[in-house]
């Protein structure tokens, strides 16, 4: 009985994931690293790179939710 209940529950849950969660894709995908960025003020010193927009430096990690 437990197996049957688990079967129905897991099947319906996975179908629910397909219908409602898959468009967001938040659960079964690679989680990218998230964090704060900071403008790089030393753009001129970046070698031979061509900078067309403001250059950001990824600070990464959790910064107190700010």
């Amino acid at each position: 009985m437990l197996m049957k209940a688990s079967y129905v529950l897991l099947s319906v849950t996975s179908l629910g994931l397909l219908m409602f969660e898959a468009p967001r894709g938040a659960l079964l995908t690679t989680t990218p690293e998230r964090g704060k960025v900071q403008r790089d003020t030393q753009e001129a010193g970046s070698g031979n790179a061509t900078i067309r927009r403001p250059h950001y430096i990824f600070l990464g990690g959790y910064h107190g939710g700010k």
């Binding site: 690679t30 990218p32 690293e33 998230r34 964090g35 704060k36 960025v37 900071q38 950001y56 990824f58 990464g60």
Partner: peptide
Amino acid sequence: VDMTSEEAITV
């Protein structure tokens, strides 16, 4: 980079 919050995701 999210321009409004200055938060970013990296891959």
